[in-house]
């Protein structure tokens, strides 16, 4: 679904932001891109949405070359959700805000209305359709932004630090929505520096460092490479740090989430007893 072929990008001032990046993301995957500030995440995003064109190599999304595709073609394929919803919200009601994208695609009448209703329902904003988005909380505004992208029914979702500046509950809510959309078949690419969220929601992780792809694999495998992560200033999730010494001694099996670690500990403590029986509801 997303294929990067040896992409390079050098800014006019000579800064090499990306130095030969290749990866392939299949339809239905949930992939996280992690890395420090300056690792090339922002540049990669701008290449994905066609704002920048690679100096060498190319990026294909669903067969479309992002450097050549028309804005509308690309928007139909990929929905982008950025850090700050206020960069896009400008209309007086949520309804109009959600209709903005599909209208740009040329939709009108009943089809348009359905798109708006479906998108609002998908993010739980139906009661707020006639509200001014500026009166909503930041988390709700981020959901407006997500819905306004969903209204164009893209196959791929690219999310750039979508939970920055929100409280924990709102952040979790956005991520749960994304998870639901993933389960419904969307391919998801999440750029994030929140390792806990990555461990909890993504299946695969790409680690960028100084414009290069340092690691690419299942989240558990990537987080096990503490050496590489440390070299780029990334700290693995708490659960993985906690369990590591006991894993090395063979007391615990590899885990990603608190629930899994809990089950492992109980299993280790009770020997043969199936830990899942004592898992709280």
């Amino acid at each position: 679904m997303i294929r990067a072929e040896n992409i390079h990008f050098t800014y006019p001032n000579g800064f090499q932001a990306l130095k030969g990046l290749s990866f392939h993301i299949k339809a239905g995957e949930f992939v996280a891109v992690i890395g420090q500030n300056g690792a090339g995440k922002t540049t990669l995003l701008k290449l994905l949405n066609g704002l920048l064109k690679p100096t060498a190599g190319r990026i294909l999304i669903g067969g479309l070359d992002t450097a050549r595709a028309r804005v509308a073609e690309l928007a139909r394929k990929v929905g982008f959700l950025f850090q700050n919803p206020d960069h896009q919200i400008f209309l007086p009601t949520v309804r109009e805000e959600l209709a903005f994208g599909p209208k740009n695609l040329g939709l009108k009448g009943a089809v348009l209305e359905d798109r708006v209703k479906d998108a609002a329902a998908a993010v739980g904003l139906t009661p707020y359709l006639d509200f001014n988005p500026r009166q909503l909380s930041k988390g709700q505004r981020q959901r407006v932004a997500l819905a306004s992208v969903l209204a164009m029914q893209p196959e791929v979702l690219v999310l750039d630090e979508p939970t920055t500046g929100q409280d924990y509950r709102e952040a979790l809510e956005i991520m749960r929505l994304v998870k639901k959309l993933h389960q419904q078949g969307h391919t998801v690419l999440l750029v994030s520096h929140d390792m806990e969220m990555v461990a909890r929601f993504a299946g695969r992780a790409l680690v960028l460092g100084e414009g290069q792809l340092l690691l690419d694999g299942p989240v558990a495998t990537v987080f096990a490479r503490e050496d590489v992560l440390a070299a780029t200033g990334l700290v693995p999730p708490q659960v993985i740090q906690l369990a590591r010494p006991y894993q090395e001694q063979g007391l615990l099996r590899p885990v990603l989430t608190v629930e899994e670690l809990y089950a492992e500990i109980i299993a280790a403590l009770r020997g043969e007893v199936d830990a899942r029986q004592v898992l709280p509801a």
């Binding site: 409280d167 924990y168 806990e196 999730p237 708490q238 659960v239 906690l242 608190v258 670690l261 809990y262």
Partner: peptide, 10 residues
């Protein structure tokens, strides 16, 4: 809706 550090949650 407070974030509970994973180690504390465990």
């Amino acid at each position: 809706g407070l974030e509970v550090p994973p180690v504390t949650a465990l």
